Amino acid sequence: MGTQQKLATAGIGPGDEVVVPSFAGPGPADAVRGTGASPVFADIHPGSLCLDPASVAAALTSRTSAVVYVRLFGFPLDLTALQSLAASRGLLLVEHSTATPADDPERRRANAAYFNARLTGVVTPVTGPGGRHGYHSYVVRVPGNGRPDRDAFARALRARGVPCHVPVQTPVHRLPSYRRELWLPETERGADECLALPVGSDLSRRELQRIVSACNALGGPLPAAAA
């Protein structure tokens, strides 16, 4: 059952508000709008890149009926805190499922562990309790002056033969169809700094070494004009 159907089955519709992440695709917000309810955007936790329970709590109003969360990039978010918050306010808690890679998850984790131990100049993903992470995407942060440095770093990697992409180009609350006069600092920072590197199970050891060498050779963020 999809997110919209789950919400509609619970009786959520016009006049209701549903808290969703802005640092994600528009799918959760679209599902909320499809019921006639209004999406309300909350910020992310800087480590998990998933909904921050504290920001969710701050976004609640008397009209809030549900919270929709996403396990973005495979990180095991703080579900316990969200469940406790939802239970205390009588809210429906719904997971918005996203497509996961159709390859060997253990190999992806092994590739991610290789990167975690060797990459320098970027901030590698944090893991959950016990080192848990699905690594649906391997998303690093490029420190520096935000988007210009991240984009220059990405161009330099591509020039060295390393495919990479920006996982969230524009937060949903900045899209024309959902424009809000809203400041979500961690969401904005994530959109400016995050970069997804290849991590698929089809990568050979030589390819892993090449990715690490290319990243580390850049020595961290580059001036926007350097690449």
Rank of each mutant, 00 (worst) to 15 (best):
R108Q: 01
C194F: 11
P105Q: 08
S84A: 15
V32W: 04
L85C: 10
E181P: 03
A58F: 00
T124F: 05
L157M: 03
A159W: 02
V142L: 11
C164P: 05
R205I: 10
V139T: 13
V19A: 08
R118Q: 09
D52A: 13
L93E: 03
S97Q: 15
L82F: 04
Y135P: 09
R155Q: 14
L119W: 07
N145F: 09
A226Y: 07
A24I: 01
A159T: 11
R150M: 01
G144V: 02
D30T: 00
A225K: 11
R107E: 13
P76K: 08
P125C: 07
L184C: 04
A217F: 03
G144M: 02
A37C: 00
T64A: 02
V70S: 01
D52P: 11
G15A: 07
V126Q: 15
T9M: 13
G131P: 04
G34M: 03
E181Y: 11
L77I: 08
G90M: 06
V67P: 06
G144H: 04
G2V: 12
L7G: 01
A191W: 07
R206F: 13
L218F: 05
T120A: 11
D16C: 13
E181Q: 14
T64K: 02
E193N: 13
T64N: 02
P21Q: 08
A117L: 14
A159P: 04
A8S: 12
Q83H: 08
P198L: 01
A87E: 14
Q209N: 13
A156C: 14
Y135C: 10
N145H: 14
P21K: 04
A154R: 14
G200R: 14
F153D: 06
P167N: 14
L175T: 11
G144K: 00
G74L: 08
R205H: 12
D149K: 00
A227T: 07
L218Y: 04
G2P: 15
I44Y: 03
F153R: 05
A86D: 05
A24T: 13
A214S: 03
S88Q: 13
G144I: 06
D43T: 09
Y69W: 15
I211H: 06
A152L: 09
P148E: 02
P221L: 08
H133Q: 12
T3P: 00
A191H: 07
C50G: 05
V199N: 15
P28L: 03
L92K: 11
E106M: 13
L184G: 07
S65V: 01
A226N: 04
A24G: 09
S48L: 03
Q4C: 05
L92Y: 09
P21T: 06
P105D: 02
G131W: 08
P176A: 03
T61E: 00
L7A: 00
L208A: 08
R210I: 01
T3N: 00
G36T: 00
E186R: 14
S88E: 12
H136E: 10
A29L: 00
F75M: 10
V122P: 06
G130E: 07
E207W: 04
